[in-house]
Design a protein around this nucleic acid. Sequence first.
DNA 1: ATCCGTCTAGACCGAACGGTCTAATGATGC
DNA 2: GCATCATTAGACCGTTCGGTCTAGACGGAT
Lengths: 196, 196
Amino acid sequence: MDNELSPAARERLLGAGLELLLQRGYHGVGVQALLDAAQAPKGSFYHHFRDKEDFALQVIDAYMAGVHGALDASLSDTSLPPLDRVRRFFDMVAQGYASDGYLGCLLGGLGQELSGVSPVFGERIDGCLTYIAGRLAQPLDEARVAGQLPADTDPQALAMLLVNCWEGAALRSRLSHDPAPLRAMLDFFFQAATRE
Amino acid sequence: MDNELSPAARERLLGAGLELLLQRGYHGVGVQALLDAAQAPKGSFYHHFRDKEDFALQVIDAYMAGVHGALDASLSDTSLPPLDRVRRFFDMVAQGYASDGYLGCLLGGLGQELSGVSPVFGERIDGCLTYIAGRLAQPLDEARVAGQLPADTDPQALAMLLVNCWEGAALRSRLSHDPAPLRAMLDFFFQAATRE
DNA sequence: ATCCGTCTAGACCGAACGGTCTAATGATGC
DNA sequence: GCATCATTAGACCGTTCGGTCTAGACGGAT
């Protein structure tokens, strides 16, 4: 059933969606362009997805699967100090941005474009960002307990702030085709948070 | 020629553009929707604007005119300490967001959506953000000289960082229909920058 | 062999898209 | 009055949009 060597149409479509939605946005990509990129006929698309909105939501799921992987890979290495693990996560994400040509973050892109149109997208993406912040809050709290952050730090709030500012830096990096805003933001943040 | 009481079609169109582009994005708004909102016929639109892209660029100009005003109003009051003047600027902008229903920043929205399509937009918006940062860099430098910021602070870099993180907070505020991310970001930033 | 559900295949649909065109209208300078 | 030019007005164009529909291909299970 699943042919490992040539992925099924559904996976090809999701892959094309990840690339094209990041590049051109939701309304900038027609269903036909997705079919062309994935070499799939229209019948396949509407067999696997209810409509374009359902497709985009599943593309977000696919994107988040990658984020989950990066979170697991970077945060699980307990040989590193907790703050280094957090920083490592963002370094991994930034590396992903680089290989896309600095197009920023899919969550930011779609969130910006679609939150005013359909509340479904806004809530979904807000939830994704909150989830990421939640994962990051744990090592931040470890760092607090270990005395690497001020004792009165609110790890959840700090994680939220970090994710939000990261999205802003990602947008700027997209506009300038330059990773510098990402690094500058992280440097400032970690220097500021740790300084007591 | 100019009728002050009922603005000319060009101004009505730009006004509708400011509102609709912020709400639904570039590809989410058709020319017809703009005509309906501005109560203008199609002939007017293509008389005043070369095409939809030219229109959007002029909407950005109109938006920046407002930003110029807010910059002038907030930064010129030299009776306030320089850092308070910067903070005041963002408070004014946040007030504008509130009256729109927390839809975030037009620059961020269009930048995110269009930078992957037409480089013209990306460069234009990047330039707008750089301009704003440049204006903010001046009071930041004043604050540095006055000893309210570390002596080795790079005001231009700090201003750029501030603007970028602000855009991220604005996106998040849009997603959650909530001004909290804006305030949290400013609080963290000013506390972090001033603490030596 | 045959049956059945999954998936592929693309013609086809009405609506909406951005953009063009010509005609009418209104104010201004002569 | 008359000519001029900016603006209004909307019918109209070809293309593309998201989405539907029917027909056939493929692969087990029986």
